[in-house]
């Protein structure tokens, strides 16, 4: 598991899943929406592009939804705040359990540098895929899954399927 000294082992994934499920249920009951993640990245990118090249941002409809009509700052967005919370929650849990450690997670088969480059590439693919699918594991698999959305279940099958198919290609990175 974690390589930090004094680190406690991870908890039961079932109990963790139950916790996540209760958070998702609370989101439904309190907000009438589920959880998300990739949308927050879209808000950040839109804000960045608008700051650097406002005319370009205004001309592209892909940014419009995230920039709004100017009355609310695009970063004052539900998912952005949710992601800030996720970051904080992860930090708290890691600290409490002694699992905080600055490191690069990888197998023995590759170097830190290679791993970081792969992470960059994998992230780019996920960013693209999440935009095309209009969501990611949080918005589609978790939220859409619990709400029995047909397209979300299709996303789950496609993502898991592709993951299993591509896994042999990257075995060295992880072992």
């Amino acid at each position: 598991m974690s390589a930090a000294a004094g680190a406690r082992p991870y908890g039961s994934p079932y109990l963790a899943g139950f916790g996540v499920g209760m958070v998702l249920l609370l989101a439904f009951v309190v907000m009438g929406r589920g959880l998300g993640a990739s949308g927050g990245y879209s808000s950040v990118v839109a804000t960045g592009v608008a700051a650097v090249a406002p005319e370009r941002a205004a001309a592209n409809p892909a940014y419009a939804g995230y920039l709004g009509d100017g009355t609310v700052h695009p970063l004052k967005d539900w998912v952005v705040f949710e992601l800030l919370g996720v970051t904080l929650g992860g930090l708290l849990s890691a600290l409490v359990a002694g699992r905080f450690r600055v490191m690069v997670e990888r197998g023995e088969g590759i170097t830190d540098r290679r791993r970081l480059l792969n992470a960059l590439g994998g992230g780019a693919l996920m960013g693209l895929g999440a935009k095309v699918a209009r969501g990611c594991t949080s918005g589609q698999a978790l939220t859409g899954g619990a709400l029995l959305s047909a397209g979300s279940w299709l996303f789950i099958l496609a993502a898991f399927g592709a993951g299993y198919a591509a896994a042999p290609l990257f075995r060295r990175q992880w072992s």
Partner: peptide
């Protein structure tokens, strides 16, 4: 309508 679009987040 704008409210509903903003809520569709997963994206």
């Amino acid at each position: 309508i704008k409210d509903a679009r903003r809520k569709g987040c997963g994206w």
